[in-house]
Nucleic acid binder design. Structure first.
Length: 925
RNA sequence: GGGCGAGUAGCUCAGUUGGUUAGAGCGCCUGCCUUACACGCAGGAAGUCGGGGGUUCGAGUCCCUCCUCGCCCACCA
């Protein structure tokens, strides 16, 4: 039957590099990844929509393992749903990434010895657009290499004209609803990026700094009285407008109302009382610098103090318009940290520096360039968050949205409960310009969906706000804007919103996920998705997060080139438990990705076996095989297949809540991809390949009707195995599936990618007994192998195996070729054999395996062990029986508990019976 | 400072409501190039389940306590 023609067809070594790109192209050409609005049930079609919106990578990004992991997860889920028959849509896209992209451009310019000011705003943007056009989207091309089945026709870009319409609409709507306002307050300022940042963009890091105690002389005091303040940032003292003490602080009560002389600046500032001061910290005296500290700003407002700014945007010392001459000439233009040193030296000289303490405190850094941010008073646009947060909070509380792993829900809720207003204006050039125009002649402010060229009121000239919007102000709209919002008649929006799952890294839970949920409610009145799946982090062997700058990263494309996309995907999926980090060794790709590569090779070789042994002749359909044609191994593998399907389904879980919101019992199940991968792997490798495939060899070689049955069942089992694995390993499964000699049925789809997902059927009692019986055979084979190994019997030596079985003589007789071949033994069932000089194995059902050996075999050890077990079991039984005879227990315990205890006792009794038999067999009468 | 999570085999992790001998992958040891596969096959060693205490006939699992890591949040200058 096997021909050289066919085997030549599949090379002996799987070569992913030679096949993957071509398969991907065939999928694309056939439109396999394209979703159709009309097929969605919400648009009158007959399919449930299933939608994932891809977290848009930065347009300048190149693929790293984090993307690899994240997008593999999404692709597995979307491919699974596509096979189930959903109208599956995965929306891809990129983010224009305001600060990040602008930083890259500025670096480019700097390398040419230029600055963005040299170019001017217009030219700078032109150049950035050109750069993005040229290099942007590279990452999306790279995603194709790992098999991402996104609908590329719908590729979105946060800065595209279409999506920009949505950004304006969102701004104007919120403005009209009173949720966007301009605020004059202290915000986080990055002196390197020269822009304000949101609270989330200013990241804390714990640092050891100094706490400087500085003496401010009290004005008009008798004996050189001073007030000592403590500060970590002495340079800001030049902006002090008061010193504050707690109103009830007896130490300072009589000083309130007097003044101190601010050193260096030589300005008199008042001593005020405010509850904000903690008398127990430091000296109980706080310097108040309203323009450079958010708390001081609040104090300043309460006391109607002036708020001089004493620093330039770039972090050098300077007198702003309202600062007079607070900053002395010699400090002007000096960087804030240098100024800090100089001020300290000056104070030291004037004996006003009382002491310096080491101090542990959190310092905020820019999340883009890691520069220490400066609190700074300025005008910014803000979104009022509390009203938006309410429904977002409710959604997670009531189960409309679930977050996996579960523990992140608490983090999410905690953040939303303490939500603060969102600073959305950035002093950058790269981004959506704020849609606000100012008329200088009549001093009005126009907020508009369309560009404004003249003042509505006075017809005078207008100028648009110079600032741009926070990047996240466009990405928070992604699930709606990519589907056509604000065009409410958009077919895509109707068909695919709300979406289903959102898969991303926990780092952007607040930046992005929470805000998307808010936007979903604010603009669509509905949650954007029902499931948030937060992946783990990719780390190296020292548990350090992989990053380009640390040089411990892995380029997914290197892995694809060396071992194939499937190896990458399988390794990632199998190695990542729910929410767990993934450890990989950048110095040893071979070892890191061995699980995936090895498994792909295994699949490949099963395919080669099929091709050479089953051949290309169409097989019979398993549906038409009658019960009495099926052998024990056939029934066993079909039952195991069913179990595997069931386990995969259970691990992947319900794709959506059954009744709109998640019920408690379904809320945290599903999306356990590593369990799904393991179930599928175990079936293919440990059951199909290790056992069933072996049983077919002699049958197929023998030919005849039974060979046809074996061919049919083997092909069917492998067909379904490939289906189960396709979401994880799309390329190799598609390649092999294309060559299967499947039975001719009317609607065989062209691609495995859209072939049906297997459906599990409940096991009948016959199937269950097939499993039990065949497992006994496996046990027998195992026992023989162990005996061989224990007694170092060479493979070539034949063994006579006698089996004494009271129940399964038939099973062993039927399986004797199997036992014989796998162990190179001959088997006789119910044969007489002397126990002297023989190795024994007692199977779980009491069946004895007797293998005559040359030497003497000691059974004493086994006997002692079994007796111990029996003793233990008796003890357990005893106490359980006592409990079940206890009136008090029966009356108090719930019925189901009593019942389960009774069942347990029955099981144990049965087990005891078996064990006793074993003991008898092994230890002798 | 507040909140959360984790400590199980050398490594990465599973362990459902307490219940037979605590599992998997990788690594390790032994023997095999057995015509699908040495990226493989067969067999094996290896865990006082972070420490201590408690509840129970029985604890990796429940309770208390301590230790060690990690994460998120935070305006005490």
């Amino acid at each position: 039957m096997p021909t050289t023609e066919q085997t030549r067809d599949l090379p002996s070594q799987y070569d992913p590099a030679a096949t993957e790109a071509a398969i991907y192209q065939r999928w694309i050409d056939a439109g396999v990844f394209s979703a159709d609005e009309k097929r969605s049930k919400r648009n009158g079609g007959d399919r449930d929509p299933f939608v994932i919106v891809m977290p848009p990578p930065n347009v300048t990004a190149v693929l790293h393992m984090g993307h690899g992991l994240n997008n593999t997860v999404q692709d597995v889920v979307i491919r699974w749903r596509r096979m189930v028959g959903d109208e599956a849509l995965w929306v891809p896209g990129t983010d224009h990434a305001g600060i990040a992209t602008q930083n890259i451009m500025e670096k480019q310019l700097a390398a040419e010895g230029k600055s963005k000011a040299d170019l001017g705003r217009e030219k700078f943007i032109e150049r950035t657009v050109a750069f993005v056009e040229e290099t942007g989207g590279e990452i999306l091309r790279q995603l194709r290499a790992i098999g991402a089945s996104a609908d590329w026709n719908r590729t979105a870009y946060t800065f595209s004209p279409e999506l920009s319409v949505g950004v304006r609409e969102a701004f104007v709507q919120l403005y009209e609803r009173g949720l966007i306002y301009r605020g004059h307050r202290v915000i986080h300022w990055c002196p390197r990026c020269l822009t304000s940042l949101s609270d989330e963009e200013a990241e804390h890091s714990e640092e050891t700094g100094s706490l400087y105690h500085i003496a401010y002389p009290v004005v008009g005091a008798k004996k050189n009285e001073t007030l000592t303040v403590a500060t970590t940032r002495p340079e800001t003292m030049l902006g002090d407008v008061a010193v504050a003490v707690h109103p009830d602080d007896e130490r300072y009560k009589k000083l309130v109302g007097k003044s101190v002389l601010l050193p260096i600046a030589n300005v008199e500032i008042p001593i005020i009382a405010d509850e904000y001061v903690d008398p127990a910290f430091g000296t109980g005296v706080v310097k108040i610098t309203p323009a450079h500290d958010p708390n001081d700003f609040e104090v300043g407002k309460r006391h109607k103090l002036s708020m001089p700014v004493i620093m330039s945007p770039d972090g050098t010392m300077a007198n702003a318009a309202d600062a007079g001459h607070r900053v002395p000439a010699e400090l002007i233009g000096i960087d804030r940290f240098e100024a800090r040193e100089r001020i300290i030296r000056t104070l030291e000289k004037s004996k006003q520096l009382v002491k310096v303490e080491s101090h542990q405190h959190a310092v905020r850094h820019c999340y883009r360039c890691d520069t220490v941010v400066e609190p700074r008073l300025s005008d910014q646009w803000f979104v009022k968050m509390e009203p938006l947060a309410k429904p977002a909070l409710q959604a997670v509380r009531d189960g409309t949205i679930r977050i996996l792993p579960e523990r992140w829900e608490a983090v999410y809720i905690n953040w939303l409960e303490n939500i603060r207003d969102w600073n959305i204006s950035r002093q950058l050039w790269w981004g959506h310009r704020i849609p606000v125009w100012y008329c200088d002649s009549c001093k009005c402010e126009i907020v508009s969906r369309t560009d404004v060229s003249a003042c509505e009121k006075c017809g005078g000239a207008v100028r648009q706000d110079d600032d741009v919007l926070d990047t996240w102000f466009s990405s928070w709209l992604f699930p709606i804007s990519t589907l056509g919002w604000p065009d409410k008649s958009s077919a895509a929006l109707a068909a695919f919103y709300p979406t289903d799952d959102l898969v991303t890294a926990p780092e952007i839970l607040f930046f992005w996920v929470a805000r998307m949920i808010m936007a979903g409610y604010a603009f669509m009145g509905a949650a954007p998705f029902h499931t948030v799946y937060l992946t783990g982090t990719v780390r190296d062997m020292n548990h350090v997060k992989m990053s380009k700058s640390l040089g411990n990263g892995i380029d997914p494309l290197d892995v694809v080139a060396a071992y194939g996309a499937d190896a990458l995907r399988y390794t990632v999926v199998a190695g990542m438990g729910m929410g767990a980090d993934l450890m990989l060794d950048p110095k040893d790709l071979e070892r890191s990705f061995a699980p995936g590569r090895n498994f792909a090779t295994k699949l490949w070789n099963i395919g080669r076996f099929l091709l050479s042994n089953v051949g290309s002749q169409t097989v019979r359909s398993v549906d038409e095989l009658s019960d009495d044609e099926l052998t024990l191994p056939d029934r066993w593998i079909l039952a195991r297949l069913n179990t595997a399907i069931f386990e995969c389904d259970a691990a992947l879980g319900p794709a959506r809540p059954e009744k709109g919101t998640w019920r408690q019992e379904e809320r945290y199940i599903g999306l356990r991809l590593s369990e799904y991968a393991e179930s599928a792997r175990r079936f293919v490798w440990n059951e199909l390949a290790d056992w069933y495939l072996e049983t077919t060899k002699t049958r197929i070689a023998a030919g005849g009707d039974d060979a046809e049955v074996a061919r049919a069942v083997l092909t069917h089992a492998f067909d379904y195995a490939l289906r189960l694995l396709h979401p994880i390993m799309p390329f190799i499964t598609e390649t092999l599936w294309q060559r299967l000699p499947l039975p001719v049925i009317a609607e065989r789809p062209e691609f495995l990618a859209v072939a049906g997902w297997p459906i599990a059927v409940p096991l009948g009692s016959d199937d269950k007994s097939a499993v039990t019986q065949f497992d006994l055979v496996r046990e027998a084979v195992g026992a023989v192998r162990q005996i061989r190994s224990d007694y170092s019997i060479p493979p070539a030596t034949m063994l006579d195996v006698s089996i004494r079985s009271n129940r399964h003589a038939r099973v062993f007789k039927d399986s004797s070729p199997l036992i014989g071949r796998l162990s190179r033994s001959t088997v006789s069932v119910d044969g007489q054999s002397d126990t002297a000089g023989a190795a024994h194995a007692v199977l779980t059902d009491g069946t004895e395996l007797i293998v005559p050996l040359g030497g003497i075999v000691d059974l004493k050890k086994e006997c002692t062990k079994l007796r111990g077990e029996l003793e233990q079991l008796d003890k357990q039984l005893d106490s359980l029986t006592k409990r079940l005879e206890n009136e008090g227990f029966i009356s108090r315990a719930p019925v189901h508990v009593v019942e389960s205890e009774r069942r347990k006792r029955d099981e144990w009794l049965k087990r005891r019976e078996q064990l006793a038999e074993k003991v008898k067999a092994v230890c002798g009468g």
